[in-house]
Design a protein around this nucleic acid. Structure first.
Lengths: 148, 148
DNA sequence: CGTTATCGTGGGGACTCCCCAACGATCGGA
DNA sequence: TCCGATCGTTGGGGAGTCCCCACGATAACG
């Protein structure tokens, strides 16, 4: 039988979709490990970062902007709210909506998790030069949203 | 409250890990949709492709080479075998192992699913020039396996 | 005013990634 | 030759992600 091979066979490993999946998995592992030091999950961190930038903001907007299932967003915001990391108030202008905003504790945690996330991303791209990293970001953005 | 925003906030969307996740998700959607035309799931296709290139090959080797949980590989190979797409025989040299090989029906299906997969990957990278696509592949390979 | 859409939230499923384990087979070293 | 370590297959489980559906309350639109 064929000896063990170190990575995917040729007809697979040259497919962008496959490579993106593998690279994304490695990125996910690195970031998740880094954020675990603060007991924060990756998507919780992303929500905190989004609330920091967009708040006050509805859960539906957060779901769309982060491409997260609205039901998962309900659970994430509930977690963050129960830990005092965000405020969740009814929107006075629209009774359907909650207005999610960052609490001081959330801002404090976010400053630490952002550094952890940045370090993990640096480890992820350590084999690239800064110019190559910029190129990668550009190429990925054009894959994600071809028309933009 | 903030108007709807079309994509992730700034501090998120410039992170390679985030972009890789989004790009990978789009790649996954495109390939899964394309392969659905032949009723084949993405990982089933990857296993067929791997068996075609490496066969006869053990399930453990397939798991390692494709980075799939050994338990999922058991289920995938069982599916493929029950549909007559692979042969699964005891390895005469090592009774622990199965020797997985491609059947004629599997080869036939693979030729079609490879074209579907290629078309999906072309759609995924349609906004890149061929040179840029090559660059992307190179960058992703260096992220996946920094030392290679 | 009636219709359509949205928000938040709930039900579910399938898939992926991770943990653990058991059992029989194999291999290398003493 | 025996024993301990490892391998391959297969099973248990959980958590997270992505997708489907639905409902009641509210808002927007014509």
């Amino acid at each position: 039988m064929a000896d063990e091979v170190p990575y995917a066979p040729e007809r697979i490993r040259e497919l962008p979709s496959w490579l993106l999946g593998r690279a994304a998995a490695r990125g996910h592992r690195l970031v998740a490990e880094a954020l675990a030091a603060e007991g924060v999950r990756m998507m919780h961190h992303a929500v905190l970062a989004s609330v920091a930038e967009l708040g006050p903001v509805s859960q539906a907007t957060l779901s769309r902007t982060l491409r997260v299932d609205p039901k998962e967003m309900v659970a994430i915001v509930r977690d963050l709210h129960s830990e005092g990391l965000v405020h969740r108030k009814p929107d006075p202008a629209d009774q359907r909506k909650h207005a999610i905003s960052l609490s001081p504790a959330g801002a404090d945690l976010l400053s630490r998790t952002e550094r952890l996330g940045a370090a993990a991303n640096n480890a992820l791209t350590e084999s690239l030069t800064p110019a190559e990293r910029g190129q990668l970001i550009d190429l990925l953005n054009r894959i994600i949203a071809p028309g933009r």
